[in-house]
Design a protein around this nucleic acid. Sequence first.
DNA 1: CTGTTAGCGCGTTCAG
DNA 2: CTGAACGCGCTAACAG
Lengths: 341, 341
Amino acid sequence: MRPTVHDIAAAAGVSLATVDRVLNQRPGVRHVTREKVENAIREIGYVRDVAAANLAKGRTYPLVFILPTSDNSFMHGLNDEVQAAIARSSVERTQIRTVEVPAFDPGALVRVLDELGEERPSGVALVATDAPEVRDAVDRLVKDGIPVVTLVSDLTGSQRHHYAGVDNIAAGRTAARLLGRFLGGSKGEVAVLAGSMLVRDHRERLEGFAAVMAAEFPSLSILPVIEGRDDPDMAHMLVADALSKKSGIIGVYSLGAGNRGLIKALKEKAVDRSLTVVAHELTAHTRAALLDGTIDAILNQNAGHEVRSAIRVLKAKADGLSVIEAQERIRLDIFLKDNLP
Amino acid sequence: MRPTVHDIAAAAGVSLATVDRVLNQRPGVRHVTREKVENAIREIGYVRDVAAANLAKGRTYPLVFILPTSDNSFMHGLNDEVQAAIARSSVERTQIRTVEVPAFDPGALVRVLDELGEERPSGVALVATDAPEVRDAVDRLVKDGIPVVTLVSDLTGSQRHHYAGVDNIAAGRTAARLLGRFLGGSKGEVAVLAGSMLVRDHRERLEGFAAVMAAEFPSLSILPVIEGRDDPDMAHMLVADALSKKSGIIGVYSLGAGNRGLIKALKEKAVDRSLTVVAHELTAHTRAALLDGTIDAILNQNAGHEVRSAIRVLKAKADGLSVIEAQERIRLDIFLKDNLP
DNA sequence: CTGTTAGCGCGTTCAG
DNA sequence: CTGAACGCGCTAACAG
């Protein structure tokens, strides 16, 4: 049987209350007594039973998810996963609330973060817009002792406790290699569609992509990035325009959202051309396009894993506990038409 | 606040003990009383607090993992993950024991399974050798009410509660497409190295691989499968031999373990040739080979996820609970040199 | 057949 | 500064 507080109390020759004060670092214990207890804890290898502790405290974890208002499938999917987590909240002792902020708007994000400083939830998860003022607002929360994790897109130089998202530089590099190898040495141009260079995930994907392209596939040249703001209509217009004007395009890398528009443009403008296309995020639209051959490979981050991981990490941090690192690594999924889930 | 047993008792006008009897389907309750309680449970939307229940019961979950004795990195890694789970056992209320059986030996597996029927652990996880007698032994356990999950390789036609492993047909198909597209229309032969056709995962990978090859890459022909029994030395010998004799080989698919031997053979025999190679399982050896260009892509199953998933599922089944399906799907990882973890 | 009561491991009063 | 006593939601004797 694993040791309990009683065992500590007996070993240290004190009462349960004193043990508890030491365990929860509350005041009112003499230094010598505290040391005695701490030694006992170490010697008998005590580990707190979190379930019992939460039961006694009647503890719940109020968590806040800050999500951008975006009309694209990926963000809808992310939202759905948060809703699914809310449905599990009674079982998981969480109380999750979502807050919507306009996309790519650092000011709005900062306002929400500062309000949360007052509210003091057990934890905050946010899809970060990468700006210094956002970083500062997050760091204020962290300094106030509120666990913060970034979701999907990280925040440069901030003190956030954890990032629940994929390695986007690696994602960009992988996209480049897939595109390069699938094109098998052909010479031509590659178009790149992004959402916005204001979010770090998109910048990093581009960075990784460009690096591998330059180093290993010199016969392919990258065209200036098209920024579609993750909006299907805008993406459609911009891509259609590029395909009309540039006949040298043989590959496309779509590193953001709004792929509905991209696919529409591809079907309209590239019926007679053979393009190799790599896109991000598995949605109903990209899935269909992968199956019908419009897209050749999809890189994906599993929104469900990201949300569940964020919750696990926030709860653990709130309790000062450690997490299974390998379990919280969000992997980059690569889907060909053969391994769709 | 979520409803508790007290609320049920009050609503149904009975005592806690009666509520408990109904909840745990124990005898000694009149039919009418039982119905009253069940209605109350339904009406107030009660869900049992598993943590509190386990605390009260002092419950632990004795689990048994049956693993094959194999000297290859993948099985070592799987073993390590089980050991890691054992290290967490006090926190997770598990008592995990591993049993080693000779690989590819249905008889040995059946003996162990039948012994477990006596021991009656809370759950059993096994790497299945796909044979009718094993299936029957597993079905006996299931009929006895013991939760069983297959790990890594599934068991055809059995009643096991769950399979914690990847979709191996999809894995084979994916390997074929990667190899085919990377080879970009070249004409030649493809060698296939497997462990044994006695395990279902290897058979399925081959099946998927052959299907896509035949349908979509007719310029590539598959050579007769080499069975290396997941043994590095045997794999080395057989692959070296094949490479010497067949100068038309331009691609290799290694769908089992023992890649240490494969890599050795490739480095010895194919220095002057340009082979495209897809292999399974990320280990120290395959990782190095991917980085130095000997291997072009690695398909992987995350042993840690498989073990943790098996444990979650076994515990849930033991309690008659449901699981988050999407969370228990083991994904096929695809690694290029750019997205290694 | 049903109810009472004493814990499980822990946190929190409230006296001392 | 320290300890005894009670309660969290649930289960398991033991009575009745």
